[in-house]
């Protein structure tokens, strides 16, 4: 139990550090790059013609954008830590609401992508790991090297060309129905599967070479019981640990794939914010992505503790 609490506390601290880092980084950017944030906010709220210098000063006061640098910095931090994210500079809408909306789309895409990658990587990885160096293993290894050499947008463009343009089976872009999700989810899932197949294969091969696995066979256990109770469970720990790291890969993929398929998720929201230099949007999206990252890793840690309560998360069984 103590280990569980330790794991959770350290992740909570990490979450706080992430918030601090994102807030500080955006503060630096706001203050280093040219442009008056108060003026930008004023233009976003009203329109360019009706903005007067008095309004700009009013906003500067309201938003706490005046005074010495250090005071402004702490005010900025306090606001961020209260999750007061402000409004978009482009359309004046509150960033928080928009984020929740966008997040639900990314969560859907990520869920479907993970499902695809799971369905591909687990069977193929187990089949490869059970007979290392044989046909299936060599095939999956080659397939992984080819797929990891493909950036996700190239995979996505290929799918669009084949399934949307040539065969007219599926729509190329949009976000209204489940049919719109097929191609983005496939693109994301295949990119993830390229990595995780090898991770699963290595983990399974490793467990198979362990003496407890051979001994389980000598005890007379076999078939599915052996694979499920002694194989999968032990192989799951390194796979889960690496899943946390893979999440970074998933986020990278999400930005690119959402852009390609015009999917209104977080990644594209962040990219739009960056391209439009919409600081509140960038900060909000950065925070949410950082927190999600910490939360996912915390879940992975907890799962690892549950599977193997005697060991530290991340440490492979001996």
């Amino acid at each position: 139990m103590g280990r569980l609490i330790r794991v959770i506390t350290s992740r909570l601290v990490q979450g706080f550090v992430v918030a601090l880092a994102v807030a500080s980084l955006t503060f630096v950017v706001v203050n280093v790059t040219p442009g008056d944030l108060a003026l930008q906010i004023a233009v976003a709220r009203h329109d360019l013609e009706s903005v007067t210098p008095a309004m700009v000063e009013q906003i500067r006061k309201e938003e706490g954008l005046e005074g010495p640098v250090m005071r402004r910095y702490f005010r900025w931090l306090a606001r961020t830590l209260r999750f007061d994210l402000g409004c978009s500079l482009v359309n004046g809408r509150p960033v928080g609401e928009e984020l929740i909306h966008r997040f639900s789309y990314t969560a859907r895409l990520a869920g479907a992508g993970l499902l695809v990658s799971f369905l591909l990587a687990v069977p193929l990885g187990i089949a490869s790991g059970i007979r290392p160096g044989r046909g299936v293993d060599r095939f999956s290894e080659l397939l992984s090297s080819v797929l990891t050499a493909l950036p996700s947008f190239v995979i996505g463009v290929f799918f669009v060309l084949v399934f949307a343009i040539k065969l007219h089976w599926l729509p190329a872009a949009g976000f209204t129905g489940i049919r719109h999700m097929v191609l983005p989810a496939l693109t994301l899932g295949i990119g993830l599967a390229a990595l995780s197949t090898r991770i699963v294969a290595t983990a399974v091969a490793d467990v198979r070479s362990r003496f407890y696995y051979r001994f389980a066979r000598m005890k007379g256990l076999g078939g599915m019981h052996l694979i499920l109770r002694h194989g999968i469970k032990n192989a799951a720990i390194p796979v889960l640990t690496l899943l946390g790291i893979q999440f970074a890969h998933l986020l990278d993929g999400a930005v690119v794939i959402e852009t390609l398929f015009a999917w209104p998720g977080m990644g594209r929201f962040l990219l739009e914010g960056i391209l439009a230099r919409d600081i509140p949007v960038v900060q909000g999206a950065g925070l949410l992505i950082g927190f999600t990252y910490v939360a996912v890793n915390m879940a992975v840690d907890v799962l690892c503790v549950a599977l193997s309560p005697s060991r530290n998360p991340g440490e492979a069984p001996p």
């Binding site: 950017v29 790059t33 790291i245 970074a248 990278d252 990219l271 990252y293």
Partner: peptide, 18 residues
């Protein structure tokens, strides 16, 4: 540095710094 999504970091830096 390893935990941070590389593309996202590049995106943030490149976007914010111009």
């Amino acid at each position: 540095a390893m935990a941070f999504p590389g593309l996202l970091l590049a995106l943030l830096l490149a976007g914010l710094l111009g």
